[in-house]
Computed example of a mutant assay.
Amino acid sequence: MKLIIRLIAGILIGITVGSLYYAFGGTFFEFLARLFVTGEAILGAIIFFTIPFIILFFIASGISRITGGSGKVVASTLGVAYISTIGAGLLAYFVAILVMPRITGNESVPEEGTELTPFFEFDIPPVMDILSALVLAFAIGIVITVTRTDTMKKWVDDGKVITEYVIEKVIINILPFYIAGVFAGMAATGTVFDTLAVFGVVLLVAILLHWVWITIQYTIAGLALGKNPFVMIKTMLPAYFTALGTMSSAATIPVTLKRVKENGIRNRIADFVVPLCANIHLSGSTITIISCSIAVMTVLPDYSMPGFFEILGTILLLGIVMIAAPGVPGGAIMAASGVLMANLGFNEAAVAFMIALYMAQDSFGTAANITGDGAVAAIIDAYEQKMNKA
């Protein structure tokens, strides 16, 4: 909550500085606004430099840790979690292309005023691009799993610890200043208020879609186990509200495990599936990312509504990249921003909007993720029982 308050403060300060320059001009206000934009350029370079490391170390470490269950249980859990994430993303896309143009009036915000430039260019080229990091992460993770190489496993685990420390202590702390610079630049062109007007409704749509997808997940799980899906959802509500408070899937695992077992899932299935899905199953986060992406592309100039195959490729990559989502507030959007830039052509302003929007509902996305884990566990339990009888 402190971070959300700081982000809101950053947005308000940035809008104030940019609006003063837009309204009154003058050397002082121009200097102040350009100072904010320069800060955005510096901090943005640092943020985007770290994204390949997030993908590399978190995915490699995550794959290397996928042990503890039989091969069929591991494979089926990965498959169900991935399909759930893809399904959630497609649901969000089809709803977004129908709803978002009506919310925004089907018009992009026109460009006005004069775009401010930073005092100097500050560019830190990433060590590798997003897809290179993704392929390398899978290669390293799979090799570690097969060969059980302790030295390499320690390297990726240590890299994950270091990267997570940088995210938590550096990136998260500079986000409010970075977003302040982005909003100062937008306010200086006179477009920011038209852009912000629609996003409260966008977030409400995303949260409603979370519950639609949770209902779909538990309907499938209930059919598989022969249980009432709404009773199963009711049993999982304590986990949902715990995740709302903690904003962390990992921190909610003890509550999730208890509620999953109360739904009749066998202990050995729950004990393996729930901790694994807390790291790889982020269907709620994917709904928010896709919904907000469509809204951003509808509102901001120079973007057009993505076609089905364009967004399908993005969703398929997001399902993989979500494995790399760090377990800190906003971790999912940090991991996903590289995909949005590579596949949908998002610039820094669009990514900044995504970060601000995502952080505003992060606790709801996390709650949807963790509640859905119970449905995945139920489906795996039903599958494993069926396989044993065959």
Score class of each variant (00 low, 15 high):
Leu3Ala: 09
Leu3Met: 11
Leu3Ile: 11
Ile5Asp: 05
Arg6Gly: 02
Ile8Met: 06
Ile11Glu: 07
Val17Asp: 08
Ala23Phe: 06
Glu30Met: 11
Arg34Gln: 12
Glu40Arg: 13
Glu40Trp: 08
Ile42Tyr: 01
Leu43Glu: 04
Leu43Asp: 04
Ile47Arg: 07
Ile54Ala: 00
Ile55Phe: 03
Leu56Ala: 08
Phe57Ser: 02
Gly62Thr: 06
Gly68Arg: 11
Ser70Cys: 03
Lys72Thr: 04
Val73Arg: 14
Ala75Met: 13
Ala75Leu: 15
Ser76Arg: 12
Gly79Val: 09
Tyr82His: 12
Ile86Asn: 05
Gly87Asn: 09
Leu91Tyr: 03
Ala92Arg: 12
Ile103His: 11
Thr104Gly: 14
Val109Trp: 04
Glu115Trp: 07
Ile124Gln: 13
Val127Met: 14
Leu136Trp: 05
Leu136Lys: 01
Ala139Leu: 15
Ile142Ala: 09
Val146Asn: 02
Val146Cys: 01
Val146Ile: 15
Arg148Pro: 02
Asp150Pro: 00
Asp150Ala: 06
Thr151Cys: 00
Lys160Phe: 08
Lys169Leu: 09
Asn173Lys: 13
Ile179His: 10
Gly181Ile: 01
Val182Ser: 14
Ala188Gly: 09
Gly190Thr: 07
Thr191Asp: 06
Asp194Pro: 00
Phe199Ala: 08
Phe199Asp: 07
Ala206Phe: 01
Ile207Gln: 09
Ile207Asp: 12
Ile207Tyr: 08
Leu208Glu: 09
Leu208Arg: 02
Thr215Glu: 05
Thr215Ala: 15
Ile220Pro: 00
Leu223Gly: 00
Val231Asp: 10
Met236Glu: 04
Leu237His: 05
Ala239Lys: 01
Tyr240Gln: 02
Phe241Cys: 01
Ala243Thr: 00
Ser248Glu: 06
Ser249Asn: 15
Ala250Arg: 03
Ala251Gln: 12
Thr252Ile: 05
Leu257Phe: 07
Leu257Lys: 04
Arg259Ile: 04
Lys261Gly: 01
Arg266Trp: 01
Val273Ala: 08
Val274Arg: 07
Val274Phe: 14
Cys277Gln: 09
Ala278Asp: 10
Asn279Glu: 14
Ser293Thr: 10
Ile294Val: 15
Ala295Arg: 05
Thr298Glu: 13
Thr298Trp: 11
Tyr303Pro: 01
Ser304Lys: 11
Met305Val: 06
Pro306Trp: 13
Leu312His: 01
Gly319Trp: 13
Ser337Leu: 10
Leu340Pro: 04
Gly345Thr: 00
Ala349Met: 07
Ala349Lys: 11
Ala350Gly: 12
Val351Glu: 12
Ala352Tyr: 10
Phe353Val: 05
Met354Thr: 06
Ile355Gln: 02
Leu357Gln: 10
Tyr358Gly: 10
Gly365Met: 07
Ala368Val: 03
Asp381Pro: 00
Asp381Gly: 09
Glu384Leu: 05
Glu384Asp: 15
Ala390Lys: 10
